[in-house]
Design a protein around this nucleic acid. Structure first.
Lengths: 141, 141
DNA sequence: GTAACACCTCTAGTAACTAGAGGTTCAAGG
DNA sequence: CCTTGAACCTCTAGTTACTAGAGGTGTTAC
């Protein structure tokens, strides 16, 4: 049995975050000591690792929750797991594309500044006026 | 003079967002009609466009605010503008790198699922166990 | 004059935590 | 057995950048 601090160390999750997951229903309410402190077993440890890994892969908690509910599922229900992963991948690729556009604009903007600031700053000008940009761009998340 | 709705249309900013910027001090408090409705001039329009463009380039409002305060500045103060743009660029590149790693993992994970779900789902397994991953990965923002 | 629409303020909700206050329990050393 | 300090407890509020809604008022076109 692990204390919350031990679970924290083993998963790299901050203690308040563990309690937060419990409040959200992602982690089941653990046993308590007589003094009301939480005690976790290996099932909880595994579940927390699953949550963290999902988060590290960029999934929102709602998707992590959906995946958790699929544990032990069979047959066509499992397509939902596949869908979640695939949707996340599509999302990710779109974001990468957007960020690349942003990168191009910012590279151009920063390069426009030669360090001399005798008159109008090229950087400020570029920020103030989208028409100076190469094309459309939008910061997604 | 523009109403808030007109300003909204001209900048693609939602009306509540304009009021939100005003509350935050990014937009100055505009004149009001006798009936207490906001009326904006071209200076406000320009300023709002600046804010939106900064946001579209991925800057947090705090950076946008810093840039706004540099308008009309001279000499070395303007290096701050350059710094902000450059910091954003570094940030952006780091994020792109991270997202690429994620993409690689997710591509592998989704490919592992052949559509048959006779026993353990490969996707769920991959999510539950980071050691099945190619390398470290973390979803940044 | 009246209907429809735009506007007003204020509160609360979103995601995923994080920080802090103020108080209790646990484990180790004396 | 007692004390001390770390770890734990609950609860509230803050973070970012908005967005949604309630309940009420102003403006405008016919």
């Amino acid at each position: 049995m692990y204390s919350i601090g031990e679970l924290s160390r083993r998963t790299g999750t901050k203690v308040p975050t563990i309690r937060f997951y419990e409040d959200k229903g992602l982690l089941p309410k653990p046993q308590r000591t007589e003094g009301n402190q939480r005690r976790y077993d290996d099932v909880a440890l595994k579940r927390l690792r699953f949550i963290r890994h999902g988060r590290d892969l960029g999934l929102p908690l709602s998707d992590v929750e959906a995946l958790l509910s699929l544990e032990g599922a069979q047959g066509p229900d499992l397509n939902r797991a596949h869908d979640i992963a695939e949707r996340q991948l599509v999302d990710l690729r779109e974001r990468i594309t957007q960020l690349r556009k942003l990168e191009a604009e910012l590279t151009r903007i920063t390069a426009a500044c030669d360090g001399k600031h005798d008159h109008v700053c090229a950087v400020l000008h570029a920020f103030s006026d989208h028409s100076a940009c190469l094309g459309p761009h939008n910061a997604i998340k």
